[in-house]
Design a protein around this nucleic acid. Structure first.
Lengths: 213, 213
DNA sequence: GTGGTTTCGCTACGAGTCGTAGCGTAATGG
DNA sequence: CCATTACGCTACGACTCGTAGCGAAACCAC
């Protein structure tokens, strides 16, 4: 937790930040045109206008590179404040769906998730740079709804964490499955229906767990 | 739609069915040991005790082979009749979770789904041999619940189809996301919580759509 | 300036995989 | 017996991988 880049830490030629952005952009471009399996690091290097060795100095391989390239797509994900929990959920789910609709996200995200099954370090990298940021939105949205009085406050913090995990898996999983497996758009109508089911389930669950005295 | 294998359609040596089963089993074994990316067709051929050319005569490539190998895992998926909709859902979701917990399913399934983003024929193959069979369980389970009176009968068949698709994406997506992305087991506790939320959402939705006169 | 350090672009390399072709042999049906 | 198809085996060119070596460039401390 020290100031970021107080001085380029050590002597020597600094790494070109322009090369970083060019490489990540070239990676997304190659994902769109070629898809995951036909994407080669040599091709990405050519597109980015850098040498292949430069690429290998910064990333261990295809997996890590694509994770970073895809993670940038999720930077635009923010929790809107539309006044009601239902509207907030619809808004953030639509944002998530819009990102997943992009071909570079479709091609890259599931591929690295599949790879992460046998690579713990990769899984941690995905979790840190992509998943955890999404999960924060769930927690934040619930806190906001509780402040509004739409949801009862949590009693057991452990139970609260489990519920947040459950919601996150349901939301992210449903959108991903709709987009990639069913291969149909998660448009406004779908998101509205989905939000309705989820919200009714959650409120009914809260009512069942803490019945009115 | 003609009888299957009335007689080996044409003259010549028939294909060895033993080779088929050996190859698919070897593919799953290689998926467990090596994962998707390091699985090579030459290695699978060696494990199965067949020549590499035999493999290429039957499958166009790695994608198609793995789809068939993984599809067999879902043969054991059946809808139990436990008396209530909640119990039925819990049962089938637990079965689905058990299959997804196997390393060959984790390694293979998401990888071919990722590939199917850029390969329409592969997507159709996945849908036909894996996805559609699962979706049938949703429709069947709902029909059974309606027969029991747990769910109101459908009025609009188009709306019914949309709802079935939604349920399917929610169920399959949530289990997949829990298993692969969150990397935590979809055990009985989790399935029970998930089923509760889903079921409360669905029944509340039905009540809202067709309010009691 | 000068020296030390790190990055960069470039070329080249062995290793491994891919998908196919060719050949002789085995198993079926007419 | 003969035509036809599948099989095992070997070999092959094409491609990608990840690394090593080189000289030049960019930065810092002195």
């Amino acid at each position: 937790m020290q100031s970021r880049t107080p001085v380029p830490r050590v002597a020597g030629r600094p790494r070109s930040t322009a090369a970083d952005t060019a490489i990540l952009a070239a990676t997304r471009e190659a994902l769109v045109e070629l898809g995951w399996s036909k994407l080669t690091l040599g091709d990405v290097a050519t597109r980015a206008g850098v040498a292949k060795t430069t690429l290998y100095r910064r990333w261990a391989g295809k997996n890590e590179l694509v994770v970073d390239a895809v993670a940038e797509l999720f930077d635009e994900l923010h929790l809107p404040d539309r006044g009601t929990l239902a509207a907030d959920i619809e808004g953030v789910v639509l944002q998530f769906a819009a990102i997943l609709a992009r071909p570079e996200a479709k091609s890259g995200l599931m591929a690295v998730v599949a790879e992460s099954v046998r690579d713990d370090a990769l899984r941690d990298r995905i979790r840190e740079s992509i998943v955890d940021r999404q999960k924060c939105l769930v927690v934040e949205g619930r806190a906001r709804a509780q402040a509004r009085g739409e949801l009862p406050p949590e009693t057991d913090p452990e139970e609260a964490a489990r519920t947040a995990d459950l919601i996150f898996d349901v939301v992210a999983g449903a959108v991903v499955h709709r987009t990639l497996v069913s291969a149909e758009p998660a448009d406004e109508d779908w998101v509205r229906s989905f939000t309705q089911v989820l919200l009714l389930g959650l409120t009914s669950l809260s009512a069942a767990q803490s019945p009115p005295a």
